[in-house]
Design a binder for these strands. Structure first.
Length: 223
DNA sequence: GCAATAGCATAAGGTTGAAA
DNA sequence: TTTCAACCTTATGCTATTGC
């Protein structure tokens, strides 16, 4: 595994300067901003991630106003009351994506948000408080307690929220292979822990958030 | 030493719209 | 009308580990 000094000089060289590199890097939201986001917006983001999975993002985004409409602006207290018949009816609405498993996930995730909110005050509190040094633990928590949030959905969801995380995209996995940290996409707890440990070390060396290190590393592979 | 649980790898399943 | 690309989740059956 190479150190941050190597990563930094590689990226500066590739992008041609500090300003060019910084312009490419995402900025995580502050804990205050994550706490300030309402539970309805979190439910909307979760649902958006679920429906985007496997589909072209622009296609789903274009349909999103209709989703906001039929799901009561994603108010979890209202969505949680939607029964099977109600969802069956939505399967007839061509403005939506008619995937029953995904439609069912919305009331499930509303319940999840309400459960978390009852325990901690709000869903944003959970997201804001979870340490990025164990972000893979948050992926696991979301996959287990939420609905349709396995695979890359949890990390992609967190990036959409602005929570600091890396995302094991194809490019990042290729970079991690080149660094000798994994030999395939990390799925086991052991592999995930190894990747987290590597990121924690780069973060300690650089002070950069995980999301920036993730993007920088992804750019170290050619394709 | 046994049953229950957790972890793992693999295969199968799924919607939309554009292109063939 | 069929195929393809977008890209991922879930189910299944198996093995390893834990708890008693």
């Amino acid at each position: 595994m190479r150190d941050y000094a190597w990563l930094s000089s590689y990226c500066l060289n590739r992008f041609g300067g500090v300003a060019e590199l910084e312009a490419r890097l995402p900025q995580p939201r502050s804990a205050e901003a994550l706490r300030a986001l309402g539970d309805d917006r979190y439910l909307s983001l979760i649902a958006l991630r679920v429906f985007r999975a496997g589909l072209k993002h622009s296609l789903v985004d274009a349909k999103w106003p209709a989703f906001e409409e039929v799901f009561f602006a994603f108010d979890p207290h209202k969505v949680v009351l939607m029964g099977a018949e109600h969802l069956e009816r939505l399967m007839q609405d061509s403005r939506l994506i008619r995937h029953l498993g995904k439609l069912k996930s919305v009331p499930c995730n509303a319940q999840f948000i309400l459960d978390v909110a009852r325990e901690r005050g709000s869903f944003g509190q959970l997201i804001a408080d979870w340490p990025s040094s164990d972000i893979v633990g948050l992926w696991k928590y979301l996959a287990k307690n939420g609905s349709q949030l396995g695979g890359l959905s949890a990390p992609r969801l967190l990036r959409m929220m602005g929570k600091d995380t890396f995302i094991p995209t194809d490019d990042l996995v290729a970079a991690l292979k080149a660094q000798g940290i994994v030999d395939k996409a990390p799925t086991s707890q052991k592999e995930l822990a190894a990747v987290q440990a590597a990121f924690n070390q780069w973060q300690a060396e650089s002070g950069r958030p995980l999301c920036q290190l993730s993007v920088m590393l992804a750019h170290t592979v050619n394709h």
